Each structure stands twice: as structure tokens, then as C-alpha cells.
Amino acid sequence: MSLFGSRPALRWLVPSAAAVVVIGGGAAAGTIVASADPSLPARSAAQLLVDVQNAHVDGLSGTIVQTADLGLPALPGLTAGNTDLAKMVTGNNSARVWYAGQDRMRVAAQSLLGETDVIRNGRDVWLWRSKDNTATHLTLPRDGQDKPKALPSGVPSTPQEAADAALAAIDPTTQVSTTGAAEVAGRDAYELVLAPRDTASLLGQVRLAIDAETHIPLRVDVYAKDATTPAVRVAFQQISFTTPDPQQFVFNPPAGAKVDTAKPHADADADHAKAPLGTKPPAAEVKGHEPTVVGKGWTSVVVAKLPDGWQKQAGEKQGGAAMVGAVLDSLPKVSGTWGSGRLLSSALFSALLTDDGRVLIGAVAPERLYQVAAG
């Protein structure tokens, strides 16, 4: 599979937004040569980047473990308990993955509440949750362009996904070097290090362990500035490059399962096009709600506008809205020439929610968010 250049074959397995927000920035390939273990030939940072871009495997399977400690303050409903969201930001997640080509993939994510599986077998895509024994079936268009983009919250990112986010934009904002050899999941690997040149970033470095034989990223570590342990780690705990048995991608709903059939996006777009004139599109499609990016590289800030009525929804007393409202109420109030709002700060990023409905997020100190909000 071609992991870079087009799109990584494992990209559809996980949400990319989280990885992009946490990692951010781009990279400029340096010329520092890896002081590799004697069993591995020396490779420069630029050579390792080319290796990853040209990586190809016919199949693999393995166990991925994701750990996170973002240094968040205690927030009700967010960093406490056994919720999927809590595990994403302060705990551990694991998943089994199988890959046998662009049209045969599977991930099985484990949690205390059960298992969530996403399976693609040709044009058929299944999403199954053991907690409530429900299954959703989607038939992809024949052109194969409509691929699943994300799994439910709580599913860990793959090392490939995290590496892709880190290397998505190559520019001079990043210093690239190597630290030599490492061992991940029992395999020899080179380690590539990305670090921001701008000291204003809260991120210290991102380390990618690249398999010496296949050039597949086996582990990605994200460090806060001046930290000695990673705030986020996504790594293979076990991996095999043997093509999985075709039966791994065949899904038969269990007895008693509730099965829903989902429309492909192409059909949904056609339905939207047929809507009567004057019909208001969903809030996410309304012009002016699209996020914008201020600045470049590791110190860039994402600015978004919340949909109308968000404050009323956050005030609801039940369900997810109640949890969001509780989190917002627990955040400290801040104000300045830009207005007033609530601030969330951690070791890796800061987030500002203004009372007029703007959200600003970046791997920067709060003062940078205030500056952008004022502008």
C-alpha cells in the first residue's frame, strides 16, 4: 500500500482531527545522519522521509495501543470515570487491526463497555457495537471514493495516521533529526525526530519510530516542551506482515442484532441537491462556520464559530449536552480587549471559548489565543 503521496491505506480507520490539533506543524527534512545501531545501515532524516513515503506492504495485522496524558485539569465528565472521552485524553486504548489491501480492512476497538468493529470488504462497510448489539451497513459507490473517514470516539489513532498528520505539511518551521535505532513490537526501527523551531509552541517534539525493513511507522510519541515522557503515544504492541485470512473481513450480524442501512454520501448529496429552494442547509454547511487557521506551522491557531443556539444546548440537563455544560462551567473565566469567555489549558494545547461563540485552539500559550481573538 502507498502510505504517503496519495492517502495512507489506514487513514480511514481513525479520526484525523485530533492528531492534527495535537501534532500540528510541518517538517523540513534535514541532513543529519542517523547514528543507527550497528545492525542497521545509517540513514539520514531526508532518506527516512523518502522511505516512509514509498512504503508498501500487501497485508498486516497487529495490536495498537494508545496512551495519553495531556496534562488537563480535572473536568467533570471529561477526565474522570471510564467514558471513552476520558480514556482518549487521560487513559489507555487498544485495538486490533487487519489490512489486506485498499478494499479489505478491519479494526476492532476494545473498551470497558464492549467492542466496536469497523470492517470494509470490497464495497461493503460494517460498523458493529457489541454494547447494544447494533450494526450499520453501508454500500460504497462503485468508484470507491466514498470511504469511511472516522471511527466513534474512543478508538485510538494508528501510528500511520499520527505520522501522516505530523508530516502532512513540509515547511521550514520544523527541525528534523534522527536519534538512531529503537525497538518497537520486537522489530528494529529508526527514530525520526520533528521539533518546532518556534519556541512559542507548547510542543517539544514528535518522535516517529520507522520499521527498518518495511518503513511502516510503528510508533509515534508526542512530547510537551521540556518534557521527558510523551504526552501521547500511539504504537504497535504486536505486528505481523502476513496477509490476513479473507474471513477476517466477512461480517455476519449476530443473532438479535439491530441492523440499519446507511446511505452513501453521494446519495445524500443528491438528496440535498433536490431539496426545495430556500431550504436552510445544516449549520456545519452555513457559510461563516468553516474553521480558519491563523499563523503557520506549530504556532498556528484554529478559529471556528459555533452554530447558533450552542449556549442553549450546553444548558440542557440531560445527555451529552449536560456533560458539555458541566465542563464549560468548570473552566476559569477570562476576559480582555477581545471580550470574555472560558479557557482550557494543558501541557500540549490551549483552547478559548468566547461568549460570542468563537473557539480558538492551538499548541500555544493562552496569551497567543487572546492576541488572535482580539484581531
Rank of each mutant, 00 (worst) to 15 (best):
R7Y: 10
V293I: 15
V155N: 01
D356P: 04
P148F: 12
G24V: 07
E161H: 11
L85V: 15
S240T: 14
W128E: 00
T67C: 04
D271Q: 14
V89S: 02
K280H: 11
L49H: 05
T134N: 04
S16V: 14
L203D: 01
D164S: 11
P281F: 04
G77Q: 04
G77V: 05
P76A: 10
E191Y: 01
K317G: 04
E161N: 14
K280W: 07
Y190W: 11
A162H: 02
S330L: 03
G26Q: 11
S153G: 12
P366D: 09
Q47C: 10
G278P: 06
L49F: 08
A74W: 09
A46P: 02
L70V: 04
P366H: 05
K305T: 15
A304R: 12
L348N: 01
W338G: 00
L348K: 01
A266I: 12
P276E: 05
T174E: 09
V118S: 03
K317T: 14
A168G: 07
S2Q: 10
T292G: 13
W128M: 00
N54R: 13
T178W: 00
S345L: 01
H265V: 13
A273H: 10
L72T: 03
R96M: 10
H215L: 08
T354R: 02
L331Y: 03
S35I: 01
T158Y: 05
A262H: 07
S6N: 13
D245G: 09
P332E: 13
R219F: 12
A195L: 01
A165S: 09
T116M: 05
G288I: 05
K296N: 15
Q247L: 13
G26P: 03
K287W: 04
A182N: 08
T173A: 09
I170G: 11
L192W: 01
T243S: 12
